[in-house]
Amino acid sequence: MTSTNFAYLSNYAIYSAMVLFTLAFFSHAVEVAFSVRNLEDKTEFDFTRTKRSGDIGTVMMVLALVFLFVGVIFRGISAHRVPWGNMYEFSITGALAFTSAYVYALWRYKIRWLGLPVAIAVLLTLGTAITILYRPSAPLVPALKSTWLAIHVSAAIISGGVFLLANCIAATYLLLDRYENKGGRPVWALKLPTLEALDQLTYRLVAFVFPLWTFAVIAGAIWAESAWGRYWGWDPKETWAFITWVAYAAYLHARVTVGWRGRKAAWLCIFAGSTFLFNYVYINVWGTGRHTYSGL
């Protein structure tokens, strides 16, 4: 097969993944919406009723993950390199990392309730990717030709996926916390985990990715040293990577050493995750500096 064939196949795989994510979205929406038998009288609800729909959602999600994986790999084959050369490629790989993190956490921690927000977030990411960010498959500019591209960018993208997941959970925490303070959870939220469990899960995800993100930043510095002649230059992208790092370090400190729990910790986590998103979107699209590889 030629490069162009692989590029087409990659696009088809991404489109198929989007269809499957949409199906997963509807299945999870049905699961949530119809788990309550009688909405007026909030006494009667039956979680087992829509279990089947949720199962379908999970199957769709896993299938979508497979197609997304194929899409990313074929994109790489078509360009004869790792598929991280422009913002379209960062986005599809980021969506892959995010979905993988979800599926992994689903298996480890029983978090199927996250299916709905995850499907929405992935569809938004892929939607922007194929409409606004799409660029034809092409070789890399000389500055990107390095093994560090594979190492640095993969670490950063995986970290991003997990940051996003941690943010989803922290946001859920805040929402449920709000309900509980106002007199109790609405029915659809009753089967979600306890606040305590959400808080713990957020912490575990952050504790898991913080070393990876540290590694991503350091790998970037090593690469910058070999490509640009300095390992740290306060380029906007570097600055925001550093801010993200400091924010998560502050989160860990606040939790472990100062004993912050719950609401304050959740806000800090969301703040830290936002600095990552800001870096990704703002600096790539409107920013200046040397990290302008978005291809826009």
Binding site: G233, W234, D235, P236, T239, W240, F242, I243, V246, A247, A249, A250, H253, A254, T257, V258, I283, G287, T288, G289
Partner: peptide
Amino acid sequence: SMRTALILLLLFGLAAIPGSIFPQRSQN
């Protein structure tokens, strides 16, 4: 104290922001 360290850490992050907004002599 841990509290001061935490505040300084956050300040450090915040203080880095303006350099990504305004052009810097050292870079451009």
